[in-house]
Write a protein that binds this DNA or RNA. Structure first.
Lengths: 236, 236
DNA sequence: CAGTATCCTCGAGGATACTG
DNA sequence: CAGTATCCTCGAGGATACTG
């Protein structure tokens, strides 16, 4: 008696685009794919890059992606579970880049304060830096934000690997980056060059000379930075 | 006193992909863009291709797209309003094709009956047919579906233009296409060739010889048909 | 850390009728 | 045709606390 017909999101149309929208259109889903594409694999890592998502919801989204064959949950021994894109999921790369590029080209305005967080930004810096140019020893870089809130974030460097950190790791930093959130975000997004930010003093580097010299080299920009730059040139 | 801060969908992250997801992620939005890309411009035309959407919701989505500068509402004189993609909206083409292509390559299974509707299919046939190969006179093609429901749809042809129609237009058809919904959908989607469907009898053509001969030529397939074909070849 | 369980709210959107 | 107005439902997902 009960009509248990599974109501599809878009009834009456089997179209590949509708299928894609159905699988990726839920809130957060596309950003989860983005984070998996850029190197986040553990539950807490993904959650950290998505301020505002609840554990329940993230778990549910991951399960749905797994059911669709886009994500694979790996559990090796009693190690922590990891989430990896399947071949199908990896094949989303061009489409995801296309969407982001489109937005960067046309909606690359400066973010408002509530659209940025130092915690997420430091995570992105970790994800996109050029690891092969990182100092080889153990180092700590501290980022002191002067605005919109005075707060600090850290990047722990150890044998060519970097880890973003929201809490003081205790060790004395060998590099100090003093700036405001807007500036560092603009540099990351490709809206302002590191060189220009250093020149006008909106970004300042202090600490061991070797670290100061290396930072602009290993600091990486967003994958959409070039799109943003092109859009700015055209707009100006 | 009231905290009227506009809560953004993805707080704390200004990322082009998040921006794109925010603007296009709502249910129906991507399909509205798809329909505008493929030639629907009037309110009722768009609504017809989206079974299940309410007028209220479609109006709201169009307004939001307009606010974002993706869609432009045109009102010429006292003619009916039309909706057109702006340059920004048109620039979504590669990303939209990329998403659909991805889905076609990996999720090109045969649709279940509730994922198809003869009314939407006939609309798509109208949108993707090769108008330059259409008969030049006034003709009526009737599509008789034998399954899953016995029903008919019409395609009115007039001076190189075709109009899909759910009701009997009254004029006698000069072409009769007899098939089931699954078969015609498979042909449209690229899963089965018109030739094969004609050969095994799952699709039959009757009527004026000239019309019968021309139909397979002006019948167009989905933009994702090639992706589906490639996926099938690989899977088989 | 990697989630699950529970409760509860609120707003998206469905249904329907109506209007220029 | 191209929407708007109104009402109402229901389920997505937020908040919180808890568990292996």
């Amino acid at each position: 008696m009960a009509d248990s017909a599974p109501v599809s999101t878009y009834p009456g149309q089997y179209c590949p685009l509708a299928k894609a929208a159905e699988m990726l259109g839920d809130r957060w889903t596309l950003l989860i794919v983005r984070d998996l594409l850029t190197g986040a694999h553990r539950f807490s890592e993904i959650a950290r890059g998505l301020p505002g998502i609840s554990p329940t919801l993230l778990a549910q989204r991951l399960r749905t992606l797994e059911r669709h064959g886009i994500v694979e949950r790996r559990r090796t021994g009693d190690a922590r579970p990891e989430y990896w894109l399947t071949v199908v999921g990896q094949d989303l790369t061009p489409a995801v880049l296309g969407l982001g590029s489109w937005a960067a080209r046309h909606f690359g305005h400066e973010p408002s304060p509530d659209e940025m967080s130092s915690s997420v930004l430091i995570l992105w810096i970790e994800r996109f830096l050029r690891a092969e140019l990182l100092p080889s020893g153990r180092e700590v870089a501290r980022f002191d934000f002067t605005a919109p809130r005075r707060e600090s974030r850290w990047l722990l460097i150890d044998r060519g690997e970097a880890t973003a950190c929201d809490e003081d790791p205790g060790r004395a930093p060998s590099l100090l980056v003093t700036t405001d959130l807007r500036t560092l975000h603009n540099v990351f997004a490709g809206r302002v060059s590191m060189r220009a930010a250093l020149r006008d003093g909106s970004l300042r580097l202090d600490g061991e000379p070797e670290m100061v010299r290396a930072f602009p080299r290993w600091f990486g920009v967003s994958p959409f930075a070039e799109d943003t730059r092109v859009a700015l040139r055209r707009g100006a």
